[in-house]
Amino acid sequence: MKNFIRVLRAGKGWSQAELAERVQVSRNSINAIENGRFDPSLPLAFKIADAFNLTVEEVFDKTDV
């Protein structure tokens, strides 16, 4: 699934490792999600959205479902 994690992360000035630490997953996992190689579960998608103070729809592109 397409997402805007890379852009949002850059906006906050966070590295993948920083975001990974915030949502308690590995950096490789953030990389996989960011590059669309893995679709996260709903709880993880909410955690990522929460980290950016956004809704899930604002982080993940639902038109790509």
Partner: peptide, 8 residues
């Protein structure tokens, strides 16, 4: 100690 991506 694995997260969901690693478990997959």
């Amino acid at each position: 100690r694995l997260d969901e991506v690693q478990i997959a």
